[in-house]
Computed example of a mutant assay.
Amino acid sequence: MAVEVIIPGMLTTVQDLGRYGYQQSGMTCSGVMDQQAYRKANYLVGNPETAAVLEFTVYGGSYRFTQDTVFALTGADMGAEIGEQPVETNRAVTAKQGDVLNLGMASRGCRTYLAVSGGFLVPLIMGSYATNIRCKMGGFHGRKLKRGDVLEIGQNSVSFSKIKNRKVSIPEYSGEVEVRVIPGPQEEMFTQKGLHTFYSGYYRVQEDSDRMGYRLDGSMIESKNGTDIVSDGITFGSIQVPASGKPIILMADHQTTGGYAKIGTVCRMDLSKVAQCKPGDRIHFKKIDVDKAQKLYKEMISKECF
């Protein structure tokens, strides 16, 4: 079984949860931008949560199934169709041999995930299937998909009858989101005025945002004596403030270390909100403490089926 790329979309890559254990050597984790949508997609088709999926960004493209296939779409709604018939998202569905899945522009949100029962068969490199485009490794030949690519699919491990009624929570994507933040680790480098600015206003996602980082436009965050630091570790969700005073949220393809002060870190349960923001969307930051963040994350996980 396989999926053939007819139109590859704007940025379509093979991803999983990421490549962990190598940041000390300068290798970033990569992986999906929206981990919640990724986990839901694999759950719906009966895959282990480590199975490789396709991540579509803004525009999906067209893909032909070479054999009967069970698949699921989660994340942003791209108006998926097969033969001009709408495809329901957030549930397992079937495709016949020769069917073409067409995905348009994301109406709300930014990223859509396609999981197929059996997962996409790509090489496991350093414990992950994730595509790292900058290093040209992982995924499908270390790059985004292009016309004519053919991705093999593994053997179905679960019958459709056992998964067809599975359900997941369906998020509502908005052009304006509240994102919870744990302060620091360099919060003390900013003035009280700067901190008030950061937490009271709205920041707009800029056009040059990508999988490495979301550059935000808005009021300048005032620092005490600049924001340069001795480079230290970066994580998914770190919020750097460079000399411009405009924050940058580091995302899945973030660098391993950075030399700008970090005013805070996006809580794990809200990273998916950020990942689904498109250029022009607005973000408001809300300060919470670690204990509250952990409690909210546990509550979120307990409500899911996986």
Rank of each mutant, 00 (worst) to 15 (best):
M1Y: 12
V3T: 06
E4P: 02
P8D: 14
P8Q: 11
G9F: 04
V14I: 14
Q15L: 09
L17R: 06
Q23A: 06
G26N: 05
M33P: 07
Q35I: 05
Y38T: 00
R39S: 01
Y43C: 02
L44A: 03
L44V: 05
L44K: 04
E49K: 08
E49H: 11
V53M: 08
L54G: 07
T57K: 07
Y59F: 15
G60C: 12
T66I: 02
F71W: 06
T74G: 08
D77L: 00
M78P: 07
G79N: 11
E81C: 15
E81M: 15
E84C: 09
E84W: 09
T89E: 07
A92L: 10
A95V: 02
K96V: 00
K96S: 12
Q97T: 14
D99N: 04
M105I: 10
M105R: 09
A106K: 04
R108W: 01
R111D: 06
L114G: 02
S117Q: 13
S117T: 12
G119E: 04
L124T: 01
G127P: 00
S128H: 12
A130D: 11
A130N: 07
T131K: 00
I133T: 08
C135H: 02
F140Y: 13
D149Q: 10
V150N: 07
L151K: 01
E152M: 10
E152L: 12
S157E: 15
F160K: 01
K162W: 04
K162P: 01
I163G: 07
V168S: 08
I170L: 12
E172L: 08
Y173G: 15
G175Q: 06
P185I: 15
Q186G: 11
F190W: 00
T191D: 01
Q206C: 11
E207W: 06
L216V: 08
D217V: 02
E222R: 04
T227V: 09
T227A: 04
I234Y: 09
T235F: 09
T235C: 12
T235D: 08
S238K: 09
I239W: 01
Q240P: 07
V241L: 04
P242M: 06
A243Y: 01
G245R: 00
I248H: 02
I249V: 15
L250I: 13
D253S: 10
T256Q: 08
T256P: 00
T257I: 13
Y260F: 15
M269K: 03
Q276A: 14
C277V: 03
K278F: 06
P279W: 09
D281S: 05
I283P: 10
K286W: 08
A293V: 05
K295F: 09
E299A: 12
I301F: 02
